[in-house]
Design a protein around this nucleic acid. Structure first.
Lengths: 146, 146
DNA sequence: GATAAGGCTTCCACCAACTGGAGGGTCAAT
DNA sequence: ATTGACCCTCCAGTTGGTGGAAGCCTTATC
C-alpha cells in the first residue's frame, strides 16, 4: 500500500508518516520504484501511534508503548507505569493552566475594556521586579509556562 | 547595568535576555567594551516580559502588550482583547487535557498493572482505525467498551 | 608581570514534533 | 505525448529558548 492510502486509513498526514519512518517508528518496505510499501502491520502501528499521540503521549513514550505492544513477555505493570507517569504530567499541566487561568481571568474581569488607557492587566504585568522578588521570598509562586 | 545583574533583578536567565534582544523585545545600549548596558526601563521591560510569559502569553502577544504598555493612547479594550483571546486558548487547552485525562484515567483504572501481559491500555491504543471510523459514524461510545 | 577566576561576547547546534515547499521522478489515463 | 495525481528527497521554519565552545574583559592575587 502506498503512503496516500495509509495516510487516509491511519488518519495521519503523509508527512507525519514519513517523519515517523525517519525516526524509526515504522519501517515500511520499498517498491521497485522507490515508493514506500506499507504492510497491514505498518498501518496498524501507525494507527496505534496516532491514537497514543492523541492521548498526549510523547514520541518517546510511543516508542516504548509500541515496543511493549509487540512484546509477548511484557507485563501490564510496565504499560501502566508509563500511562500513570503521563497522567501525572497531564495533571500537573492542568494545574498549571488552571492557575494561569485564575490569575488572568481575575485581571480580565477587573479591566474595563473601554476607550480609556487605564488597565489593571498592564498594571499587573508591570509589577516591579523588586515586588516580585518580595513575593518570591514570601512564598508567592510566579512560575508556569504553557 | 550588566546582564548578570539584570538577570538577577528580572528573574530571567541571561541567555533568555540575550534572546529577547535578538528578537527585538529589548534594546539595551552597549558599553565601550561591548558589554550590554541596561537602563532601568530595560530591566522594567524584562520583568514585564517575564510576568507576561509566566501567564502563558506568547512572545508575539508579549510584543503587542509591551507596545500597548508604552503607548499613552492605548485603550484598555485593546489590552483586554489580547487577554481574552489568550484566556480562550487556555480554556481550550484545559478542555483538551481534561478529555485526555478522562480517557487515560479510565484506561489506567482498568489495567491490572501486574505481571500478566493483558492490558486494556494497549488494547485501546491498538483499536483499528476502521473501528474508530465506525464508532464515530454510529456515535458509539468507545470508552464504554473497555 | 603573570595568571586565574569570573563575567561577558558571538556563534552554532539542539530540543519536540512536525509542516511547508522546492525540485524532480513515476504512473495511469486520455 | 501529455496531463494530473501521486510519490520521492532534502532543506528550512516553527516556538521559546538552552547548552556549549572559543575567545575577550576585568579584577584580584601572588
Amino acid at each position: 500500500m502506498n503512503i496516500g492510502d495509509v495516510a487516509e486509513r491511519s488518519g495521519l498526514p503523509a508527512k507525519t508518516i514519513r517523519y515517523y519512518e525517519d525516526i524509526g517508528l515504522v519501517k515500511p518496505l520499498r517498491s521497485a520504484n522507490g515508493y514506500r510499501s506499507f504492510r497491514e502491520r505498518d498501518v496498524h502501528k501507525l494507527a496505534f501511534l496516532g491514537r497514543a499521540r492523541a492521548l498526549g503521549f510523547s514520541i518517546e513514550d510511543c516508542r516504548n508503548l509500541l515496543k511493549l505492544y509487540e512484546d509477548d513477555h511484557r507485563t501490564s505493570a510496565e504499560v501502566k507505569q508509563i500511562a500513570e507517569e503521563h497522567l501525572d504530567r497531564i495533571d500537573r499541566k492542568i494545574a498549571e493552566l488552571t492557575e494561569m487561568r485564575a490569575t488572568l481571568s481575575h485581571l480580565v474581569d477587573a479591566c474595563a475594556g473601554d476607550h480609556r488607557p487605564d488597565c489593571p492587566i498592564l498594571s499587573d504585568l508591570a509589577t516591579k521586579p523588586e515586588d516580585i522578588a518580595l513575593l518570591k521570598e514570601t512564598g508567592g509562586a510566579r512560575k508556569a509556562r504553557i
